[in-house]
Structure formats: structure tokens, C-alpha cells
């Protein structure tokens, strides 16, 4: 198995010795865990510049021309897949997307065989989503190219956490010292886990708000305050991050009903009135209007940053694709 560059003594030494050390000494982006605040800051700054570029008429570039990007999605997705495709195309990648129905996984090929097959096609970066925690890291160990985790089971979704952080930073001017409440299905959410890691590393105060059946065991050990009462959980927060709750979990298995969930944990004007007046609302999408969030709030452009999150998603993914292929481009 190959060692990742960040683990080698040489890279460690280079980082310590050289002021011009690689600002992002990682071969893959598999999770927020393992990224230093400085690396996160670097990605956010770069993404911020791409966000500006994306708003200009001249948003395309040929920075990564000739490089191949494969998006390998074993789990259905529209917005994340499209976001990665657009990000790649704006940078000039040859972008190919493979959704699970089109792959031979259905024919019984194992994940590692798929990895080896794709590796033989010599891609330069591969973006992977899989329904099993740890599956993307397993695949990355067999690949010669950079790998970006686009979501693995309940484990991590690093680009989502980065785009959330960028959105918050642009609206609030900082991350440090903000109080952020993450509300909803924490137990099954990779978005929650990556956000807890990222925002925690950047100095935000974190709360999770959920019914006990949607909280993972010992979640307080991740450095969050735990609330099962939403009004208390939203008191004086700067940011509310709502998570999607899957309908099948609301039909008696983990929650009594959709109606009861909205009543107790849905985001409404009344509950939101306990937060700070300049509170910002985030949602990773797709939303269940009237289930976890009142429709009017989702469309409130002053308080809701939901559309901006989608916009930042492209910028963040451009930044990730850019940094992971820099050495490749410099070398050529």
C-alpha cells in the first residue's frame, strides 16, 4: 500500500523547515478529520476567490486542461454530482460521471475491482460517493490519483462542511466564536459529523439539537452541547443548520410522525425568535418544506443562505480539485 505524502518524514520536515511549504500537503480529501485549521483556511480562501470568479462572465478556465476527473457515485445524488461536474468543467477537466446504475457493481464486481479498473484508465482525480462509511478511504488506498470523498455512509462529507463554512464566513465575516446549532437527524448524518469537525476546529461553539432517537451514542464526546429541546437549543445562536430527515424514519421507526416532528423540531418563526436577531439559516438540501423547515423561512433571503450554499458548493469543489492536482500541473 502506498503511503500518503502527509505521513512521510520528508513532508513533515519540509513543512517545518520551509516557509514556502505546500499550504495543502494532502494527497486526498477523505474527510475533515486530519485537516489542520491552516489547511481549512487555505481551502476556504481559495474557494472564496473561485466564488468571485464564478460571478464574473469569464468563469471558465483551462487551468486543468488535459486532466481527467471521474465522478463515481454509488449512491444517488443530483446536486452534489452536478456541482462536482460543473466545478471540474469550469477548471477545464475532462469530466466523466458514473452513477451506480451504469457501473458493473450491479453485476457483482467488488469495490476494489472497480477501483483497480478505473485506476488503469489513469484518471487524475476521482470523486467518490458510497453508502458505506470508510468505503472511500478503502478505495483511495488502491488508487494512484487524488481522491475526494463526496460522502461515505454516515462518516464524512468534507466538501459540504467546507461550503457551509464558506457560506457562514462570507455572511458573518468569521467562524471563530460563533454559536452554531445543528438540528435534525444527527445520527445518520455525515454532514453533521464533518461540520462538527470543521466548525469545531475553527473555533465555533457547537450545539446539536435532535430527538434522542436521532442522536448517535456519546455525541457529546465530539465536543458539542446536546439539546433535545429546540427552543433551548436555539437560544442566542448565530447560525442554525437544519438537516434533512428521511421520511421513512418519521413513520414510527424513530419518530412517531411527520406532524409531531415538525411540531417539536421543525424550524418555525416562533422557535427561531429565540436565536439572535441576525441568525443565519443553512440547509444542505434537498429540503422537506413543512417537515423540518417552514416554507417561508427557507425563502427568506435575508436569513436563509440556502441558495448561497449551492453557489459556494461549486467554488469549494473547484478549490479542492485545484489543490489536489497542483503538483501534477507544476510537474508537467
Amino acid at each position: 500500500m502506498k503511503r500518503r505524502p502527509e505521513n512521510t518524514d520528508a513532508v513533515q520536515k519540509a513543512l517545518i523547515d520551509s516557509p514556502e511549504a505546500n499550504p495543502f500537503p494532502h494527497r486526498h480529501i477523505l474527510g475533515i478529520e486530519g485537516l489542520d485549521p491552516a489547511h481549512i483556511e487555505f481551502l476556504l480562501d481559495l474557494a472564496d476567490s473561485y466564488a468571485e470568479q464564478n460571478r464574473s462572465p469569464d468563469k471558465g478556465s483551462d487551468l486543468c486542461r488535459g486532466l481527467t476527473q471521474i465522478n463515481l457515485f454509488f449512491e444517488s445524488s443530483t446536486r452534489t454530482l452536478m456541482s462536482f461536474e460543473i466545478a471540474g468543467k469550469r477548471l477545464g477537466f475532462d469530466t466523466v460521471s458514473l452513477a451506480t446504475q451504469a457501473s458493473s457493481i450491479k453485476k457483482g464486481e467488488t469495490l476494489l475491482d472497480t477501483a483497480l479498473t478505473l485506476n488503469a484508465m489513469r484518471p487524475d482525480v476521482i470523486v467518490v460517493r458510497h453508502s458505506d462509511a470508510g468505503a472511500v478511504a478503502l478505495l483511495a488506498a488502491k488508487m494512484d490519483c487524488a481522491v475526494i470523498n463526496a460522502g461515505d455512509g454516515r462518516h464524512e462529507h468534507p466538501t459540504q462542511a467546507l461550503l457551509d463554512a464558506l457560506t457562514i464566513r462570507r455572511r458573518k465575516g468569521r467562524l471563530d466564536g460563533l454559536t452554531v446549532a445543528i438540528c435534525g437527524d444527527i445520527a445518520h448524518s455525515r454532514v453533521a459529523r464533518s461540520n462538527i469537525r470543521l466548525l469545531g476546529a475553527m473555533g465555533a461553539r457547537l450545539r446539536v439539537v435532535a430527538p434522542p432517537t436521532l442522536l448517535p451514542a456519546q455525541v457529546h464526546r465530539l465536543g458539542v452541547e446536546v439539546y433535545t429541546d429546540m427552543v433551548l437549543g436555539l437560544k442566542d445562536v448565530d447560525v442554525v443548520m437544519m438537516l434533512r430527515v428521511q421520511r421513512e424514519r418519521m413513520e414510527g421507526a424513530l419518530l412517531p410522525s411527520q406532524k409531531e416532528y415538525f411540531r417539536l423540531y421543525g424550524l418555525t418563526e416562533e422557535k427561531l425568535s429565540h436565536a439572535r436577531p441576525d441568525v443565519l439559516i443553512l440547509h444542505p438540501g434537498p429540503m422537506n418544506r413543512g417537515v423540518e423547515i417552514a416554507s417561508g423561512l427557507a425563502d427568506d433571503m435575508d436569513r436563509s443562505a440556502i441558495q448561497e450554499q449551492v453557489e459556494m458548493g461549486v467554488a469549494v469543489r473547484m478549490a479542492c480539485l485545484d489543490v489536489l492536482t497542483r503538483q501534477l500541473r507544476d510537474g508537467s
Partner: peptide, 8 residues
């Protein structure tokens, strides 16, 4: 805690 961190 370990399962929660690993998402398992």
C-alpha cells in the same frame, strides 16, 4: 464514541 466518530 468510536462508532459515532466512524459513522458506523
Amino acid at each position: 464514541e468510536t462508532a459515532t466518530r466512524l459513522g458506523l
